[in-house]
């Protein structure tokens, strides 16, 4: 169902699946272009969670989805504030954050029961990737402190500065990290699958979605004790 939540800058839509009671998994898609490449996968994951008796929510953040705010009008702190408002809307004690890729940068400032990250990426690494994409279509090199056009998203200097400094492990509290087995970085669990966020054409990996739904469901139940 479509729900709504209010933050200081307006009202945003929030896609919800699963039961009306119990814990809620609050999903944060990756920022920018990777969001388009993982939305189908995330929605499938949420339906699978519902099938396992666990509710989930996927909010539009300022500058994303149906939001009336343009991406160049917003900042990472505002997106984080909106995430906090979404947590309040759902009831803080029920919420388990689920950050996919750079979506993991959005939850540290939201008060949640626990966090689960899939292939999280730090802000500095993200900026390196964005600069490379911005430069791919240009002859002159992009500067990392000026407004940047990346795949149709205009990032202001303020957004760029915030992204560069953003980290996924700012807060204490229960955190589980899952990565693909092709990724050498440390994780609590490695799983087989393809990095859908790298694909130019949106793809899907049903086996990976099922595996991750099981992992999230077990993690949420363990945290709820």
């Amino acid at each position: 169902m479509i729900d709504w939540y209010d933050w200081s800058g307006g009202r945003e839509a929030m896609l919800r699946f699963g039961p009306a009671t119990g814990p809620v998994v609050l999903v944060a898609l990756p920022l920018f272009e990777e969001a388009n490449r993982t939305r189908t996968f995330a929605a499938a994951l949420m339906r699978l969670l519902a099938g396992r008796g666990i509710a989930s929510a996927l909010p539009d953040l300022p500058g994303t989805g149906e939001s009336l705010t343009q991406i160049e009008e917003t900042t990472l702190s505002e997106m984080r504030a909106a995430m906090g408002a979404a947590v309040d809307h759902l009831g803080a004690r029920r919420v388990h954050a689920c950050g996919i890729r750079s979506g993991a940068l959005l939850d540290p400032h939201a008060f949640v029961r626990a966090r689960w990250h899939f292939s999280p990426v730090e802000g500095e690494v993200l900026m390196t990737e964005l600069l490379r994409i911005a430069q791919a279509g240009k002859s002159s090199p992009a500067s990392d402190d000026a407004p940047m056009l990346v795949g149709g998203n205009l990032l202001t200097a303020a957004m760029v500065a915030e992204l560069k400094a953003a980290t996924t492990d700012a807060d204490p509290g229960p955190l589980r990290i899952v990565r693909l087995d092709s990724d050498p970085r440390p994780a609590d669990r490695k799983v087989p699958g393809v990095p859908l966020w790298r694909r130019a054409e949106p793809g899907h990996d049903p086996a990976l979605a099922a595996l991750l739904a099981d992992d999230i469901a077990a993690w949420v139940r363990a945290c709820e004790g």
Partner: peptide
């Protein structure tokens, strides 16, 4: 399939998997 945008994805994914850094 390997256009200039896809090249960026290939290089970044190679960096991740092999723990290397590729300068532009």
């Amino acid at each position: 399939e390997l256009d200039s945008l896809a090249v960026a994805g290939v290089l970044t994914e190679l960096e991740d998997r092999l723990a290397i850094l590729i300068e532009d």
